[in-house]
Measured scan of single mutants.
Amino acid sequence: PVYLSVKADNSMFIGNDPVTDETMITALNALTEGKKDTTIFFRADKTVDYETLMKVMDTLHQAGYLKIGLVG
């Protein structure tokens, strides 16, 4: 499974590897070998604001990742 996490300080990680807004999709493409039907499990600290969550989800959708599971 692929886990994308947003921490309380808005830092992002794919698994244990830090990513930025600019590198997130490139890292996901490498990890999933470009398979856009891969489910991305998205988790965020409860203090992360809604705007940040939606920005990340919008970026995922624009890149073609449509299977996003929200996890606690």
Results as ranks from 00 to 15, higher is better:
T52S: 06
F41K: 06
K46I: 10
V56F: 06
T32S: 04
N29S: 06
T52Q: 09
K55G: 07
D37H: 07
R43E: 13
D58I: 12
Q62P: 00
G64D: 02
E51F: 10
T20E: 06
A30K: 15
T39C: 10
L66G: 07
M57H: 04
A27K: 12
A27F: 13
N29I: 10
T39I: 11
M12R: 03
H61P: 00
F41C: 11
I68N: 02
S11G: 06
V48W: 03
G72T: 14
D45M: 03
G72L: 06
A8W: 12
N16F: 08
P18N: 06
K35Q: 10
D45A: 07
T26S: 15
G69C: 12
G69K: 15
R43Y: 15
D45E: 11
L66V: 09
G69N: 15
H61A: 13
K55E: 05
T23I: 04
K46N: 13
K46M: 06
T20Q: 05
M12D: 00
V19D: 00
M57D: 00
P18S: 08
A44G: 05
Q62F: 07
Y50D: 09
L70K: 03
V6S: 01
E33V: 07
R43H: 15
T47F: 10
K7P: 02
T26H: 12
L53S: 03
D37Q: 05
E51T: 11
V2K: 02
T20K: 04
G15K: 04
E33N: 13
T26K: 11
D58H: 12
V6D: 00
I25F: 04
K35A: 09
E22G: 08
G15H: 04
G64C: 03
K67M: 14
M24S: 02
T59F: 09
Y65T: 00
D58P: 01
Y50A: 11
E22N: 08
K35P: 02
N16E: 13
K36L: 09
T20D: 10
D49P: 15
T39Y: 14
K67C: 09
G64Y: 02
V48L: 09
T47L: 12
L66I: 13
K36C: 04
I40W: 00
I68F: 06
D21K: 13
V2Y: 04
D9Y: 07
I25H: 02
A63E: 07
G15I: 03
A63Y: 06
V19S: 02
A30T: 10
R43W: 14
T39S: 08
F41V: 13
T23V: 04
N10I: 03
K55Y: 07
Q62W: 05
K46A: 11
L28R: 00
T38Q: 08
A8Y: 09
K55T: 08
V48F: 04
P1F: 13
D45I: 02
F42P: 00
T26A: 15
A27W: 10
N29Y: 09
S5L: 13
Q62M: 10
L53A: 04
L31C: 05
K46G: 07
I40E: 00
H61Q: 10
D37S: 08
L28S: 00
K7L: 15
K35F: 07
T32I: 05
L31S: 05
K7F: 15
K46Y: 10
V2S: 01
V2L: 08
L66C: 09
G34S: 07
G15R: 03
D21P: 15
T26C: 06
T32K: 02
G69L: 13
T23S: 10
I40Y: 01
S5A: 08
A63R: 02
G64R: 02
D49I: 08
A8H: 11
L66W: 13
D17I: 13
T38S: 07
M54G: 06
D37E: 09
K35D: 14
M57V: 11
P1D: 09
L70I: 15
K35L: 06
D9I: 04
T59E: 06
K36W: 05
D45Y: 04
A30E: 12
T26E: 14
G34V: 03
A63H: 11
N10M: 14
N16I: 08
D17F: 13
K7N: 15
H61V: 11
P18C: 06
I14K: 01
S5N: 11
T32E: 01
T20S: 09
I14G: 01
T52A: 08
S11N: 08
H61Y: 12
I40F: 02
M57G: 02
V56Q: 02
V19M: 03
V56S: 02
L70D: 05
K46D: 13
E51I: 12
G72K: 08
D21Y: 14
T23F: 06
L66E: 08
L53G: 01
G15N: 12
V19H: 04
L53Y: 08
K35E: 07
D37F: 05
D49V: 07
T59K: 14
T47P: 06
T47A: 14
D58F: 08
G72W: 04
G69H: 14
E33S: 14
M12V: 11
I14T: 01
L60D: 00
I40L: 03
D21V: 15
L4V: 14
L31Q: 07
T26R: 08
T59L: 13
K7E: 10
K7S: 11
V19A: 02
F41M: 12
G34N: 09
Y50F: 11
I68T: 06
L31R: 09
M54S: 11
L53W: 10
D45T: 03
L31H: 09
Y50R: 13
P18E: 11
M12S: 01
Y3Q: 06
Y65N: 00
A63K: 02
L28G: 00
S11D: 04
L4W: 02
V6M: 14
M57C: 06
D9Q: 06
T20F: 05
Y50G: 10
T52F: 14
T23W: 03
D21N: 15
Q62A: 13
N10H: 14
E22S: 12
A27L: 13
G64V: 01
K55C: 05
T59R: 14
E51N: 11
T26Y: 11
M57S: 04
L4R: 00
T59I: 15
P18I: 11
F41A: 04
D45N: 04
L60G: 00
G34E: 05
L4G: 01
